[in-house]
Simulated assay, not measured.
Amino acid sequence: MTDKKIKNIFVEGAISTSFIADSIAKHSSKKEIGGHSIFLGQVRADDIDGKVVSAIDYTAYQETALAQMHEIREAIFNKYPLTCMHVYQSLGTIKVGEICLFVFTSSAHRKPAIAACEEIVERLKAELPIWGKEIFEDGTHQWKENK
């Protein structure tokens, strides 16, 4: 690992639309940016075996996840000519319709921002120790499968 500070990607609760809008607005003064890519993960009301999801309760091994995300961040910055990268993952209970993941990349051109954003989302889902417990409308629950 490098000497760069490990950034905390975790936020307690849902990621608000005002937080997302503020994050985007802060980049308007960065004149070298020509393209942004944004991924927003939202909790769905999946129907699983006749039961409907009402929320997902997210947990993580935070220390391990943050160290792994730091390695992903470094690899992505080395692979793509990005100006900025921001990643936020919710912890706690997130209701259907709320945002639980926000990935935001910026670069001089659109293609690196788009490719980096997609790779970050895929690696985060595959590599980080973050789990979601689906909570159904009837109060029962089960661990969610990452897809």
Rank of each mutant, 00 (worst) to 15 (best):
V53N: 03
D3K: 08
Q142M: 08
L40S: 07
D22W: 01
E145T: 13
E127Q: 07
K125W: 15
I48P: 14
K26Y: 14
A75E: 13
A65T: 05
M85D: 06
L82P: 09
V103Y: 03
L124I: 08
I48K: 12
I48G: 12
C100H: 03
H141K: 05
L128A: 04
K7D: 14
G132C: 08
F136N: 03
C117F: 06
V11T: 13
E145K: 10
H86A: 04
D57A: 02
A14S: 15
R123K: 14
T2D: 13
G50C: 10
A65Y: 10
E134Q: 10
G41D: 10
T105A: 12
E32G: 06
D46A: 14
A14Y: 14
S54T: 04
E118P: 04
I135D: 04
D22F: 07
M69S: 02
C84T: 03
L66T: 13
A67S: 15
Y80E: 03
G92C: 03
G13D: 08
Q89S: 06
Q42D: 07
S37T: 15
Y58E: 08
P129F: 14
K7M: 11
V43F: 12
F104D: 06
M1T: 09
E137H: 04
V52H: 13
K125R: 15
I130G: 01
E134L: 10
V121P: 15
F136K: 06
D3Q: 13
G13A: 10
S107M: 07
E98R: 13
F104C: 04
Q142P: 05
G139S: 04
S29Y: 07
K133P: 01
W143L: 09
K26F: 09
H70T: 00
F136L: 08
E119L: 14
S18E: 14
I15F: 08
Y58K: 01
L101D: 02
K111W: 15
S18Q: 15
F77T: 03
K111T: 12
G41M: 09
Q89K: 05
F39K: 00
S18Y: 11
K133G: 01
W143P: 00
F39M: 03
I76M: 05
A45Y: 05
R110N: 10
G97T: 09
H36L: 12
R73Y: 10
V11P: 03
